[in-house]
Structure formats: structure tokens, C-alpha cells
Design a binder for these strands. Structure first.
Lengths: 164, 164
DNA sequence: TTGAATGCAAACGCTTTGCACTCGG
DNA sequence: CCGAGTGCAAAGCGTTTGCATTCAA
């Protein structure tokens, strides 16, 4: 019955220096930010600082990343972003077609920077995902969908494990 | 966040009256229990009453069911089983090869009574799953797995939606 | 008798939500 | 000034665990 409640701490309102981060940024970094910004604008997403930082990680190249991994990466970098914002942003990016959700394991959702249809190798032991371009898989035959349904996407998952 | 979808009931129990009222006795039920018991014993699972009741639901025919749906079914029947036992049992059944886990949506795990390799139609709106026998799909070509890895299973998921 | 199985409630991990604060146009 | 965005804490939800009780060999 009795619920052991942790006494509510009284944290101070968090404040971040508004502009404060850009240290010596190389030209390449500026270009990269510019590219991320363009991509966000193009998708109709307002390019806030947090979204740009998330985009810098997530749009760098093909990647499969969970919300928590992203959070840790941002912690590690000098630009922490709150969990709420990370979840909001990932969800937004998916809606806007900038990321794709992958659900292969029950414990967490992965976000895939490759948004067009493709397939995956899935290492059942480590959970690691490897992209397979759509052209490298051929599904020659499958039955018609149930009545009044149309096939939308055919997705192939190949479970792999260490060779014996 | 509210697709409490119920997998299509398989009305192929033709010995049951259309109203589906719980028979109080009958040779068929005894036979069914006997079959479930045999199946459990054969898999090295001690046939307790709860496991038999769960097996009666889950081994009746092709089914995709979540832990919670199973819990509700047992509540509805005259044989409630605690959540802990349901989760324990489903996990055990998977370990023993009596059920197969399906993860297509982040919100819950489904358990598939068909344990040999097969594929699925997945209704992206309702979450409903439909089995596709392995022979009805042909994957003719896919790239070799990464180094020191071997392909274990090739699983095809076909996302479907209502025809326009 | 004794280990396995069960069941309740509490704990847990991931994700979402409520709401006050901040920012930029 | 206002609406969009952010961040914290708390809530939510599915699942797991700790542990006392019950069952079955």
C-alpha cells in the first residue's frame, strides 16, 4: 500500500548559454551544418539548434541508431539534448520522411537514416543491422494480399549469426 | 496509440456451437487437453493446469496473440491466470520451440502458434498479421552475409493497406 | 519433503505527456 | 507579443523480478 516516495528534489531551472557553443569550427563543419539545415528546411522542419545537432549525427551517413544511443552521443559531444526533445525530434523526422523506423527487437526502436525501401541483415546475437540495397534482393513471387488490400512494401529481413 | 487489435478468430472449430458457449463436458475437450498435454510433455514442459489452459488457447490453430490478449481471454474464460505466469509461460514456450515471437510493432510482442519458418502480411493500419506459408514466397537472390556470418533465416514481411 | 510453479505487487526500461520556460520572428 | 520549440519530472505501458505461498512428485 504505502508507496515509498522519493522526496521531490528542487532543481534549479536549467539554462544553457544561448549561442555559446561554437568553438573553432572547421570549414567542413560549417558546410555540414549548412547541408543539414538545407535538408531540414527542404522537409519543412524548422532548423533549431537541437535539430541541427541531431541531424549532424543522423544524416552523416548510413546509420542505425536508437533514441538512447543518440542521447549518449549528444552527451558525449558538447551538446546534450534532453530525452523529450530527442524523442520528439526522431518522431518528427520520421513523419517528415527524414528517417525510417525499424522494429526488429522488442526492447527498442531503431532509426534508419536510409529512408528508401531496402532490406537488412540482422545479427541475432548483437542486434546489429546491416543495410541491403533493394536491388540486391529479388522476391520473385508472393501470394496476393487478402481481399481489398494492396501490397505496400515487401521487406526482407535476413537473420544472421556467427559461422560455426 | 490505441490499436487494440484482435487477431481474426479462426472459426474452424466446427464441433463448437455457433454461439461458442462453454461446454461443460465433452469427449472433444478431453481429447484436446490430452493433445495439449502430450505436446507439452513432448517439449519437456511440465503440464501444469495453467500451462494446459494457455496451451488450449494457443495451440488450437494458427493464431497471433499478445500477452495481454491472452490474459483477457483467460479472464473471459473461467480460468484466470496471473500476468506473471502468462509471461513466464510464453517465454518458456518460445524457448521450447512451441511458439515463435513476432516483433513488427514497437508496442507489443506477438506470439505465433506457427513455429516453422513462414512469412507475414502486416496490415499497417490495424496491426493484423496474416500467415504466408514459406512455399508461397520465393526469394531468388540476396547478397552474401558479412564476413564470418551465415544466413540463418530469410523472413519476408509484406506491408498491406486497404485498397484505395 | 522439497524443488518447481504460481501470483501478487513492486520494480524496470523505454517512451510519452503535462506544463512552465525560452526563443525567435 | 505570440506560437513553436525545449526540457524537466511524472506518468504510462508492456514486461520482468522478488518473494511468499501453493502444488505436485
Amino acid at each position: 500500500m504505502s508507496n515509498i516516495k522519493i522526496p521531490p528534489p528542487r532543481p534549479e531551472t536549467r539554462r544553457r548559454s544561448p549561442t555559446g557553443e561554437p568553438r573553432s569550427l572547421g570549414a567542413s563543419e560549417a558546410v555540414e551544418r549548412q547541408r543539414v539545415r538545407a535538408r531540414l528546411l527542404n522537409a519543412g522542419v524548422a532548423p533549431t539548434i537541437q535539430r541541427l545537432e541531431i541531424g549532424r549525427i543522423v544524416f552523416r551517413g548510413p546509420i542505425h541508431i536508437s533514441a538512447d544511443e543518440l542521447h549518449q552521443k549528444l552527451e558525449a559531444s558538447s551538446f546534450p539534448v534532453s530525452r523529450a526533445t530527442i524523442y520528439n525530434t526522431l518522431k518528427l523526422f520520421v513523419e517528415k520522411g527524414l528517417l525510417r523506423e525499424i522494429v526488429v527487437s522488442a526492447e527498442r526502436v531503431y532509426y534508419d537514416s536510409t529512408t528508401d525501401l531496402h532490406h537488412h541483415f540482422y545479427d541475432v546475437e548483437t542486434g546489429e543491422l546491416t543495410d541491403i540495397p533493394a536491388e540486391e534482393v529479388t522476391v520473385t513471387r508472393f501470394p496476393p494480399p487478402p481481399a481489398h488490400m494492396t501490397a505496400d512494401e515487401v521487406e526482407v529481413l535476413i537473420r544472421i549469426r556467427k559461422s560455426a
